[in-house]
Structure formats: C-alpha cells, structure tokens
C-alpha cells in the first residue's frame, strides 16, 4: 500500500425525502487497501456504495473516487472501477470466453490485449479448458471467481464487491479471498461488504455503518481492543444492536 488515496469522502449525505439514508459519512481509502464496509441491513451501505460507483448523486457533501468527482464525473468513475455482487452474474448463455470478451469490450480494453490477457487469467484460475463452456454450466464457486476476474479484467483502480461470497462453499470462499489479496498486491483497491465476520478480519480496515452513520472505522485489531471484544462478531453486535433502522 502506498499513501495515495483511492476514495475520499467528506460529509457525504443522501436523503430520500425526510429519510437520511447516509448521514455525513467521512472516510479515506488508500490505494491497494482492502476496505471492509460493514453494517446491519438498512444501515445505508448500498446507498453509500451507489454514490461511490457514480450511480446516485449525493444530496450533499463531497467525494472523489479514483480522483473523480461523484457529482460531475460519474462516467469517468464508472470506467475506472470494477463491480461485482452476489446477485450480479455473468451472461449465463454466453461462454466463459465470450463473457470476458464482452465485458472487456464494454470497458474499452484494447482489442489486441483481450486475448492474451484472457488466456493468462483463465490459466491462473484453472478455467482455461472450460473457456468454451457456457457460464450456466459452471459450479457457483467458479462463477463467482470468474465474476471477480471479469470485474478486475480492465485493471480498474478500485473494485467494489457487494457480498461476493454469499452462499459460496467454505473452500471456495477462501480461494476467493486469495484472489482478493492478489488484486490488492497489484495495487487494486478493494471495497468489500460481507455478512461473514471472519472475512471482516481479512480486511486492512473496517468501517461499521449504523443508521446511516459510520459508527466505527479502524483495523480489526484496534476495533476489537476498543470494544473489549474477542471477535469481530462481538464488535458487530455491540455496534449494531442499538440500531433503530431495520431494513434492507
């Protein structure tokens, strides 16, 4: 990790009528950092993430993502980030190879670079021999690993991962984190949400959102110390138990 900043927010706020979904959230994420974005359902995580991805214009406050402004430069943001969620799937009726070519094309990867890079990625993943198979025929764990590779294929500055390991078997879940570490070592910033508290431990730093506010932000070790907790589970309970909002 270098000292460069990948994401910077200052009192970023989103209101829907009287409802303040994200309330003056302020934090920095460093380049290459694995940043865990945690919170109870309804805490405002999705709202915050949508603003950072350039999909929703904030009500007030400031933020830059990969150096681009979340009000004026949303198209530049979209080009410089990758995104994957548990629900987001590749095109099931395209092959592995076609999916990569399609998304690489969308993100403007030069045509001459797509094939050699795709070959290398698929070899690394152990999916090269399945390259002409329809994505629908792959086991879920492989789909998720492939989705991640597609999300970082255009070498974005930041990749947003929204519950990427939900429902995945415990072995694949760990292989997935190997991929995350690898991307982080290459300088890609990882912004990740999860409901698995053991995965929170793998993040360099964690923020905990409660009722639209960022209630805590620190390394896992420091959070556990500050809350006198044995595990991240306890920290989460301590913070989220007082939540007023119960929602999605």
């Amino acid at each position: 990790m270098t000292g460069e900043v990948a994401i910077s927010t200052d009192k970023l706020t989103k209101r829907f009528g009287d409802f303040v979904a994200a309330n003056e959230i302020t934090f920095d994420v460093k380049k290459g950092e694995i940043f865990g974005f945690l919170g109870a359902n309804g805490a405002g995580k999705t709202t915050a993430m949508r603003m950072l991805c350039g999909l929703s214009i904030p009500s007030s406050g400031q933020a830059t993502v990969a150096g681009f402004d979340v009000y004026r430069q949303t198209e530049e943001i979209k080009k410089n980030i990758g995104y994957m969620s548990q629900k987001f799937s590749l095109y099931e009726d395209l092959t592995v190879w076609e999916n990569i070519r399609f998304f690489a094309g969308i993100y403007g990867v030069p045509r001459s670079e797509i094939a050699p890079r795709a070959k290398e990625k698929l070899r690394q993943l152990g999916l090269y021999h399945q390259r002409n198979q329809l994505v629908a025929s792959l086991p879920l764990g492989w789909k998720q690993k492939l989705s991640f590779s597609v999300a970082v294929f255009h070498q974005p500055e930041i990749v947003f991962l929204d519950e990427p390991t939900g429902g995945v078997d415990p072995v694949t879940r760990r292989q997935f984190w190997d991929l995350i570490y690898e991307a982080s070592d290459q300088g890609i910033t990882i912004f990740v949400t999860t409901h698995y508290m053991d995965e929170a431990e793998y993040c360099h730093r964690i923020s905990m959102m409660v009722d639209g506010y960022i209630k805590a932000l620190d390394t896992p070790t420091a959070l556990k110390q500050n809350y006198g907790a044995e595990s991240m589970d306890e920290v989460f309970f301590e913070l989220a138990r007082g939540a007023q909002r119960k929602g999605d």
Binding site: G39, A40, N41, G166, G167, H195, F236, A243, K246
Partner: peptide, 10 residues
C-alpha cells in the same frame, strides 16, 4: 437467514 445481518440472524 441468507443475506440477513448477524444481529437479525440471531
């Protein structure tokens, strides 16, 4: 409890 946070799961 899929997709539900730790507190609601409990």
């Amino acid at each position: 409890t899929t997709g539900v946070d730790a507190v609601s799961r409990w």
